[in-house]
Design a protein around this nucleic acid. Structure first.
Lengths: 147, 147
DNA sequence: GCTTGACCCTATAGTTACTACAGGGTGCAT
DNA sequence: ATGCACCCTGTAGTAACTATAGGGTCAAGC
């Protein structure tokens, strides 16, 4: 199986496959006489594992760990569980961070009017007030119906 | 005002300030005889603007746009609004993506048992099933009370 | 037999937003 | 005079690719 075929089969770019090989995630395959990479089914399976893990947001470092754990049948499942749990926690933290950020952005945007930058509240919020002040501004806006 | 003082005043690292200057976000300040950077109040204000924008998740590219818009008093506030709205949309999309991802990760983790990797469901889910199958596995698990 | 196009190869640089040296100079206090 | 904290430039490293340059290979069609 040539690299282009493997790429198509797994939905990965050719360069990415070579990158995974260089990073030690995918073992170097045999080569044809023309020095083309010649992949086996095992490579396809391993690459699918990598892709699925990446789709779930695991870093390559974590994928490496998961692969190492998966390679050793005697390894406890707990270690796998730990990697995945840590990742889930990180994702949840990220969601919380982004949600707080979204709320602040929403407040910022409620300040938007139709004037010029000279009295643009978004700009002045970014320029001189701290973020807590935006709330006061926006409630003022709501009171005056300017929305 | 020396760079270290500006750094402390804004909660920015010295290297980051120099990086902003090199990136054209912060104008080069005057220099002392010793070739030290000598900042004015205007630099502090501009840097605070950059920091607040970055805290809200704007890319440096967007910050550059916002600064350009803010510099021109005649510019319409609409342009500012557009930049901020686009960012808000991107943040909301990211939250949605991460939420879907979190749900899939949760499903994956519900599969975790206490065996060895040989029959570790997390590994096998990553290895061979597509993600839709995890749901079936997990509902099966829920049925058997294994959670 | 020769060309054309699709594919393959290596090696290197670019992306984002910093961070971290290495190797050197400055200013002030002891 | 010497130590220390601070400043300078320039370069390399981070994550996970992506893109380019400059070249080789293979099968099909004329």
């Amino acid at each position: 199986m040539k690299i282009g075929e493997l790429a198509k089969a797994t939905g990965t770019k050719v360069e990415t496959i070579r990158y995974y090989e260089a990073s030690g995630l995918l073992p170097p395959p045999a080569r044809t006489q023309a020095n083309y990479r010649d992949y086996e089914l095992s490579h396809l399976e391993r690459l699918m594992f990598i892709r699925r893990s990446r789709d779930l947001g695991f870093t390559l470092k974590s994928v490496r760990e998961l692969l190492t754990l998966a390679d050793d049948d005697d390894e406890s499942c707990d270690a796998v569980d730990e990697v995945a749990s840590a990742h889930l926690l990180a994702v949840e933290q990220k969601i919380a961070d982004l949600t707080a950020l979204r709320d602040q952005l929403s407040l910022l945007l409620q300040c938007s009017g139709d004037g010029t930058v000279g009295d643009c509240r978004i700009i002045s919020s970014l320029a001189s007030t701290n973020l807590a002040n935006i709330r006061n501004q926006s409630s003022h806006i709501r009171e005056t119906g300017n929305q």
